[in-house]
Nucleic acid binder design. Sequence first.
RNA 1: GCCCCCAUCGUCUAGAGGCCUAGGACACAGCCCUUUCAAGGCUGCGACGGGGAUUCGAAUUCCCCUGGGGGCACCA
Length: 495
Amino acid sequence: MTNANVRVRFAPSPTGYFHLGSARTALYNWLFAQHTGGSFILRIEDTDRTRHHPEALPDLFDSLRWLGWFWDEGPEVGGSYGPYYQSDRAELYRQYADQLIQAGKAYRCYCTPERLAALREEQRRERQKPGYDRRCRHLTSAQIAQFEAEGLRSVVRLMAPTEGQTSFEDVLRGRIVVENAELDDMVLLKSDGYPTYHLANVIDDHLMEISHILRGEEWLPSVPKHVLLYNALGWPMPAQVHLPTILDPSGKGKLSKRKQKGPGEAERLTFIHEFRQAGYLPEAMTNFLALVGWAYDAETELFTRDELIRYFDLDHVSKSPAAFSYEKLDHMNSVYIRSLGDNDLANRLLQVLRRADLDADYQRVLQFAPLIKERLRILSDAIDLIDFAFVDVHTIDAETLVQKAMGVDGTRQTLTDSAEALQALPSFDEEAIEETLRGLVGASEYKIRDYFGALRMALTGKRVSPPLFETMAVLGRQDTVQRLRRAAQALNEAE
RNA sequence: GCCCCCAUCGUCUAGAGGCCUAGGACACAGCCCUUUCAAGGCUGCGACGGGGAUUCGAAUUCCCCUGGGGGCACCA
């Protein structure tokens, strides 16, 4: 399907950092626009002045660009349907609100927040449906004049029908019908003069000529109210597509926008910048997120960006909520890391290592890249894996250095023998190292596992490391021999 | 409480009446490979929530129940 008239928007409100749930919504909008050749619009719904978070916007823009989901219109890129910040459009919303009042389709309500809270409280106690009781719906002009004279603050409410039904078509879910009695007179304009989501979103979607609304399922219940608004304004409604919720990994409840502890005490990653920081690849994030709520066929899970764009369609978007699996993301990320070229990987690792305060140099990282490539789930795994290569002295605990089967003397002997043999090698390359060391193990009474274990420990200070011979070759003769000798020395001192 | 949405392995899913003794992936278990850890290979475990109805035939259609999720603000 190619339709240049497709215009979709991602419309977050800047109240916090860009998180997984919003990201999936943004992605589907972006993919749908790319797929259809339409436009992807970014609009900032900043009409709640009390919840504005100063870092939200920079975080959002950085994250979207990092992911490569560029917007065709919106902040920092412009467009002919602006402004793209709702706070800059406030006057517009007031005009439409006035227009609705003039037409008798909306009215001013002078009820105080306190009265409304008390009303809700009472309704809750009486087990009644919460909702505005429409007290101000039929004020006389005299009453209105009096309230205005008293300087009472007011909001504008929609005059919703009390009987009949309202229905609409959701692309994924089909026809949805609700009783108008369930709807109440929603606030369109707040007392501070700013619009509510409902008013602003309807007006902007219309004026910006949005063709499809792809948004989270949590908006489904408010669509009937929007239908009323579109009707009151005499506008056609864009196609509605309500995306399934992303659930917490446990499958219990919506994925939180805030920090959440996983099993154990580990804090789960929530914000996109955290995934970036941890070393998830934007390609993998895009691929994985696309699959939370959409599938191409029974088999395929790995998609390039272009394939995603080519294959993505609304027909295969799922209706049921999906739990977010961090394990599967990790797996996919590791697949993407393994597919990276050595230079590419080295460049990405360099940043991660330096951020971890390691004095890493490109050449050495490049040499390690192929050795650790298949051992990384996320880029920051590299820190634990090869930090030893970028520190001069590492203290090795004699306790762990000594192999049980070899004893202190045996371990020390192994280290010095190996150091000597390696020192004497004509050529210090991987093959020569392996041949020599295997020869030494064969001549000794020890098992390969123990023998190499001691060397690994001496060299890296770890039980787990990249392959031994390759690591030695990367470290070089001098460094390797020195590490082995220092370790042997440490055993002397420990005695 | 009321309203809306949803329902296949533990999780993500394929499945649009016979191709299904239900396929793939993650996770998990075992074996192989192996200098550690990974990666890789092989094998295994494992699901159509329940009940009716339609039909020659239902995971696929309809109804009820149950379960899960979401919503009921001068927040978006």
